[in-house]
Lab assay of single mutants.
Amino acid sequence: ELSWTAEAEKMLGKVPFFVRKKVRKNTDNYAREIGEPVVTADVFRKAKEHLG
């Protein structure tokens, strides 16, 4: 699991709890794919757009 900024964690907190774990995993995987060592708010937004 990658490191997350406080802002990205806050955004994740707005995701319904029953899918939060999956969203975190998918976002981590997306960040790795694009070469990001940390999940930022920008990476979170891009993952959301990319993953739907």
Rank of each mutant, 00 (worst) to 15 (best):
E1T: 12
E1F: 12
E1N: 11
E1S: 12
L2K: 05
S3F: 14
S3R: 13
S3W: 11
S3G: 08
S3N: 10
W4G: 01
W4H: 01
W4M: 00
T5L: 03
T5G: 03
A6F: 09
A6I: 12
A6Q: 10
A6S: 09
A6D: 11
A6G: 07
A6R: 10
E7Y: 04
E7W: 04
E7I: 05
E7M: 06
E7K: 07
E7D: 08
A8G: 02
A8F: 01
A8T: 02
E9L: 15
E9V: 11
E9W: 14
K10L: 13
K10H: 10
K10E: 14
K10V: 11
K10M: 13
K10Q: 12
M11R: 03
M11F: 05
M11A: 07
L12F: 04
L12D: 00
L12C: 02
G13F: 14
G13H: 12
G13R: 15
G13V: 08
K14G: 07
K14M: 12
K14R: 10
K14L: 12
K14D: 12
V15S: 04
V15R: 03
V15E: 10
V15P: 02
V15I: 11
V15A: 05
V15W: 08
V15F: 12
P16Y: 06
P16S: 06
P16K: 05
P16M: 05
P16N: 06
F17Q: 08
F17W: 15
F17A: 11
F18V: 10
F18A: 13
F18N: 12
V19L: 15
V19I: 14
V19H: 14
V19D: 12
V19K: 13
R20A: 04
R20G: 02
R20K: 05
R20Y: 04
K21N: 14
K21M: 14
K21A: 15
K21T: 12
K21C: 13
K22I: 14
K22A: 13
V23D: 02
V23I: 09
V23A: 05
V23L: 10
R24P: 00
R24I: 04
R24Q: 06
R24F: 03
R24G: 02
R24L: 04
K25R: 14
N26C: 13
N26L: 15
T27E: 00
T27Y: 08
T27C: 08
T27M: 08
D28N: 12
D28F: 03
N29T: 11
N29W: 11
N29G: 08
N29L: 12
N29P: 01
N29S: 11
Y30S: 01
Y30A: 02
Y30E: 01
Y30V: 03
A31R: 02
A31V: 03
A31T: 03
A31N: 00
A31H: 00
A31K: 01
R32D: 03
R32M: 08
R32P: 00
R32E: 04
E33G: 09
E33Y: 12
I34D: 03
I34G: 04
G35E: 05
G35M: 06
E36N: 05
E36P: 01
E36V: 11
E36I: 07
E36R: 05
E36Q: 08
E36M: 08
E36Y: 09
P37L: 14
P37Q: 12
P37R: 11
P37S: 14
V38S: 05
V38L: 09
V38F: 07
V38K: 07
V39D: 00
V39N: 00
V39H: 01
V39C: 02
T40R: 02
T40E: 01
T40D: 05
A41K: 07
D42A: 09
D42C: 07
V43A: 03
V43D: 01
V43Q: 02
F44T: 01
F44K: 01
F44P: 01
K46M: 10
K46R: 12
K46L: 08
K46F: 05
A47L: 05
A47I: 05
A47Q: 03
A47M: 06
A47W: 12
K48A: 14
K48D: 06
K48Y: 14
K48S: 14
K48W: 15
K48T: 13
K48M: 15
K48N: 15
E49M: 12
E49C: 09
E49N: 10
H50M: 11
H50C: 07
H50R: 10
L51Y: 15
L51Q: 10
L51N: 10
G52R: 14
G52F: 10
G52P: 08
G52L: 14
